[in-house]
Design a binder for these strands. Sequence first.
DNA 1: CATGGGATTGACT
DNA 2: GTCAATCCCATGC
Length: 215
Amino acid sequence: MRARAAEAEPLRGGAPPAPAASAGPTLPRAFFGRPVLDVARDLVGCLVSHDGAAGLIVETEAYHQSEPACHAFVGLTPRTRTLFGPPGRAYVYRSYGIHALLNAVAEEEGTGAAVLIRALEPWAGVEAMRDRRRLERAEELCSGPGKLTQALAIELHPDGADLATGPVRMHPRPPDRPAPRLVTGPRVGITKAADVPWRFCAASSPHVSRPRPPG
DNA sequence: CATGGGATTGACT
DNA sequence: GTCAATCCCATGC
């Protein structure tokens, strides 16, 4: 067993249990088994839930084996096994030795493609998010790919798990929410294929990561 | 088996 | 604006 005290330890003595984030039905497998750019666009507005908290996706990035910024560019290795697997699974990897980053595997089995979830608007279990992040402002809880996994308590464990059955789940856009208008731009923080405009943000959302897209 | 890079964040200048 | 922290895994000797 690894050291996981920070995860298991209650943060405050009398903290009430997080409210159940009943985010409703999950996205079908067929949603993810499509071109990764379509999946990345259509995921904005959808919900992600885990461990008593949930957020609306306000920012995504697409990655595909055909371009060098994608981990799958190097081919099938133990690390990229999940990327080449069936669509609709979670691909979670550690970045910079510290952060767990959440992706949704897209396209058909055998093709390495995924959508990185970069930012959420807190939707349920916000107090649990504040406890985990030790921050108050809603705009800072999930405004980055490493921040949102911390807020939702997602570690590497869900890698390879089905997003329809959990532990990490993805759900359609709540019916009372309008479909967001999208802003497209270059992906953040990469050195290879940095010019490809495969980043999709909900226009004017205060919950997206930096750098904020224009408009 | 040793090394180095990486899709980040938070603290600091 | 800079920079360190930190770990998985691909690569090369």
